Simulated scan of single mutants.
Amino acid sequence: MRDIYNRRNSIQWIQQEDIEYPEKLRPYKGMPKTLYVLGGLPDPSRPSVAVVGARRSTSYGDNIARQFSAELAANGIQIISGLAWGIDTAAHTGALEGGGETYAVMGCGVDVCYPAGNRKLYDWILQEKRGGIISEQEPGRPPLAGFFPARNRIISGLADLVLVVEAREKSGSLITADQALEQGKDVYVVPGRITDELSRGCLNLLKQGAGLADSPETLLEALHMTKNGRCKNRKNGKVLLAKDENIVYSWIRLQPVSLDELVKKTGFPTTKVLQTLVLLQLGGHIREIRKNEYVRTDSRIIDGEVFSNRGVTGKGEDN
C-alpha cells in the first residue's frame, strides 16, 4: 500500500498484490489493478449490502432506502452505494443515521466530490470516520459517463447482497444487478406500483427470480443475521446453513482442507466456493489458517497439530 498526499487528505493507493486489497474482489476477473481510498475499506469479516436505485427517485423510494439502510446498519451491516443523487444518497444517509458505516464507490477521483451538492454527505463519511470513498480512477480525475457503469462491478463485488430500490427499465442500477448475478450474489428488489415507470426495472428483476424485499428483516434473514447483528444459524447445537453452504461446510473437517480440494470435492466453480467460504467465515463456522486452507472453528492448531474440543486429532487424520 502506498500513500499519496494532497493538501487535505491522505489517499491510500492499494494494488492487487497488496494485502489490503479487498478479498471480496479477488475472485472476479476484470477487477481494478489499483484502488484509491479515502477513509477506509469495508471490514471483510462483516456482511455488506449494496443499495442502488434511481437518481430521480420518488419520496417513497428515498424513504424506503433510508429506512432499510438505517435498520441494516444498526444491526452491523455495512452499506455500499455510489454517492449519486436519489437512492444512493438516501442509502448513505440512512446508514450514517443508523450508527453504521457506509462506503461510496465513485466514478471519478476520490478527492472529487460528485455530485458537488453531496459535499455534506461526503464530508460526513470522512470526518466521522464512518466508512470510506473508493475509486479505481486516479485522484483529480473528473467524472466521465463511461466511468459509472464500470464502477458498478466494484459496488456489487464488495457486497454480499444487492438491494435495488426503484429502477427504470434501462438504468445503471440494472447493470449493478447484472454484475451481482454474474458474481453469484443474491439480488433483492423493493416492490413498487406496476403503473410506475420507476417500478419497471424492479418488476423485470422479480420476473428473473430476484428476491422480494418487503422489510429489512428479509435481508437480515438472507444474510443469516439476527436483529442484534449476530449470526442466526444454530439450533440445538447444530449448524443451520443454506444448501450450498452446507455442502461446502460438510467437506471441511478439523484437519485443514485447501481451496483446490473443496472445488474438487463439491464440484462447484472456484468462484462459488470462495463466495461460500466467505459466508461461512462471516458466520463464524470456519477460519482460514493459511492462505486458502480452512478448518472448522471448533479446532485449534498448535505446532502443526490440530486439536478439537475433544482433544488432538493428529496430523493427516480425517475426523
Rank of each mutant, 00 (worst) to 15 (best):
L198Y: 02
A180S: 11
R168N: 00
V239G: 09
S215N: 12
K272E: 06
L205G: 02
D186Y: 01
H224F: 02
E169W: 03
R253I: 13
L161E: 03
I194T: 07
T218V: 10
V248Q: 01
N228D: 06
R230T: 14
D244V: 00
V164H: 05
G237K: 15
G267W: 14
G229S: 11
C202T: 06
L161Y: 05
Q255C: 13
G211R: 09
V257A: 01
E169A: 03
R193I: 07
P269C: 11
D196F: 11
K264C: 10
Q183L: 00
V164G: 05
Q179M: 06
S199I: 12
C231E: 12
Q208P: 15
T270Y: 13
E166P: 08
Q183H: 09
A242K: 12
E245M: 00
K272S: 08
G157P: 15
C202V: 06
K272N: 05
N236Y: 15
E197F: 13
V248P: 02
A242L: 14
W251L: 03
L203S: 05
E169K: 00
L240T: 08
V165I: 10
S215H: 15
I247Q: 08
L223T: 11
K264R: 14
L163C: 07
G229Q: 11
R234H: 11
L174K: 08
K243D: 02
K264F: 11
R253A: 07
L174D: 06
R200A: 12
S250I: 02
E182V: 06
L220F: 09
L220W: 06
V165S: 03
G184P: 09
L240S: 06
N204M: 12
L223N: 10
Q179R: 07
E197D: 06
A159P: 12
C202M: 03
C202F: 04
I247M: 07
G157W: 12
K207I: 08
R193D: 00
D178Y: 15
W251R: 04
T271M: 06
E182W: 00
